[in-house]
């Protein structure tokens, strides 16, 4: 589904990614683990074309996207839920939900989204998206990309700073969308949460992928992982 090879990325003069290599198979949930500043978020943004400059190869469904603009990449069927959530304060909750254009058939209907996220239905009339709580904003940020029909979802730290009960709800959501055949690339700091949803984990350090651990082998590799993440 997604094959990344030799991906380099820059913000202005600073060289952040130094040849990232990994792949995600269709229907998989794959995480990028790593310390702060390792380059996980930059990898997500680079896949979407949201960095100043990127080189290397990012193939989606076999087609090279490295020369494409962010809107073209989105139209190809990749959607992002950014780390800072990106809820628009000048838009109502409903407008936020309906903002991303539908890029392909097969997305969730608004009713299905409200079944997954009952809170959003209650808050649909809220005039400013940023009035929602952090957890509600995170759900809205995930919900709006489920509508679009994009089959490859990039979720950047969806559990960051949220209460355990909301983290559980987001975990259930990720498993639910995996069951519906979505492919998910997840950035996580919290590998205990990651272990409950993912098939495989890539470890990122200094802008490179340094290891891959299948979820089944996570327990056996705990010491190594603690070492990587410095926890």
């Amino acid at each position: 589904m997604l094959e990344i090879a030799g991906l380099n990325a820059w913000y202005g003069e600073s060289h952040i990614l130094h040849g990232i290599d990994f792949n995600v198979q269709e229907g998989e949930v794959v995480t990028l683990l790593g310390r702060n500043g390792a380059g996980k978020t930059t990898t997500m943004k680079s896949i979407m074309g949201l960095v100043g400059r990127r080189e290397g190869s990012v193939k989606f469904k076999g087609a090279e996207t490295i020369g494409m603009l962010p809107n073209q990449i989105a139209r190809a069927g990749i959607a992002i839920c950014p780390e800072e959530r990106g809820i628009f304060g000048s838009l109502s909750v409903t407008e936020n939900l309906m903002l991303p254009p539908v890029v392909a058939p097969g997305g969730l209907s608004v009713d299905e989204i409200y079944t997954l996220f009952p809170n959003l239905k209650e808050r649909a009339k809220t005039a400013h998206g940023t009035r929602l709580s952090g957890g509600e904003q995170q759900m809205l940020a995930i919900a709006r990309i489920l509508r679009t029909g994009a089959r490859m979802l990039l979720l950047d730290e969806p559990t960051e700073g949220l209460a355990p009960v909301i983290v559980q709800q987001i975990g259930r959501t990720i498993r639910a969308i995996k069951n519906r055949g979505f492919t998910v690339l997840l950035v996580e700091q919290n590998f205990r949460f990651a272990a409950t949803v993912a098939d495989r984990h890539y470890v990122v350090e200094h802008g490179q992928v340094i290891d891959m651990i299948p979820n089944a082998a996570l327990e056996a590799n705990m010491d190594k992982l603690h070492d990587y993440l410095g926890v």
Partner: peptide, 10 residues
């Protein structure tokens, strides 16, 4: 508010 994100939505 945030042109790059809107562009990343397509």
């Amino acid at each position: 508010e945030n042109a790059p994100l809107v562009q990343a939505f397509g």
